[in-house]
């Protein structure tokens, strides 16, 4: 579904991604772990070209997104993204946050979009918040809203960049549960996370990134229980303790 070929990204002199060739297949749930600064976010943001790669190719549904003249906006509609800091729209109500893009881009009628939004809100336990402004929501609620906002576009894949890192501990569970439910429904996901227990539980594959490369990858059992690379071992021994 998404394929990167020799993906490189530099920020000035800093080589953040050093040649990543990787494929995300339909229905896969991929967790990306690794030390901070290893390029996980940059890798994720290259998948929908929020960062444009310095070199290399990103192919989505057979279309090379890195080619000139590709309608990125159209392809981005099919890739939902959830950020560490939620980035919900503070000037819109919860419902407007969700319906904005479907009405504007998919030409859905407002009643249709709202009905769908309410259905999605019910699934994440936010039914009673539809008319609120986001400033009245807790962090966990904002993140659930951000997920629903992405889902309202019926994406083929969801990209999560540390979706629980900015949350108070007591709210982490509710957001992870929402992601778990998505996974159970068969959504293709790429999740950058520091929640190792969660990664082990939901992932079909885990990528360990270090210094801009994918140092090691495998099933959760392989990677967490029998890591081969010394770097992976060192990292896991620090975070799992």
């Amino acid at each position: 579904m998404i394929e990167t070929i020799a993906l490189c990204k530099n920020f000035g002199d800093l080589e953040v991604l050093r040649g990543i060739t990787e494929t995300v297949r339909n229905g896969e749930v991929i967790s990306v772990i690794g030390p901070s600064g290893s390029g996980k976010s940059t890798f994720l943001r290259c998948l929908n070209l929020l960062e444009s790669p310095t070199s290399g190719t990103v192919v989505f549904d057979g279309v090379s997104l890195t080619d000139r003249g590709v309608d990125l906006n159209l392809h981005r509609q099919k890739m939902g993204m959830v950020f560490q800091h939620f980035n919900v729209f503070p000037h819109l109500t919860v419902l407007q946050n969700i319906t904005l893009a479907p009405v504007l881009l998919k030409k859905r009628s407002r009643p249709d979009a709202e009905a769908y939004a309410r259905e999605l809100l019910a699934r994440v336990g936010l039914s009673d918040k539809a008319q609120e402004h986001p400033r009245r929501l807790s962090g966990g609620q904002k993140q659930r809203l951000a997920i629903v906002r992405a889902l309202a576009m019926d994406p083929e894949v969801m990209l999560f960049d540390e979706p629980t890192s900015a949350l108070d501990p007591e709210m982490v569970g509710e957001v992870l549960q929402v992601i778990k439910n998505l996974v159970l429904q068969g959504m293709t996901c790429v999740i950058v996370t520091h929640e190792m227990g969660f990664a082990r539980e939901v992932s079909s594959r885990v990528l360990f990134m270090d210094e801009g490369r994918i140092e090691e990858q495998g099933s959760p059992e392989e990677l967490f229980d029998r890591p081969r690379s010394p770097r992976t071992q060192a990292f896991l021994s620090k975070v799992l303790r």
Binding site: N48, L50, N73, L74, R76, Q77, M79, G80, M81, F83, H85, N87, V88, F89, L100, A101, L104, L105, A146, R149, A150, M153
Partner: peptide
Amino acid sequence: VDPGQTEAARTLGLSARQ
């Protein structure tokens, strides 16, 4: 305005102008 706002909008598929 937080650049994250623009990023969130662009990932939904909005054009730069939108």
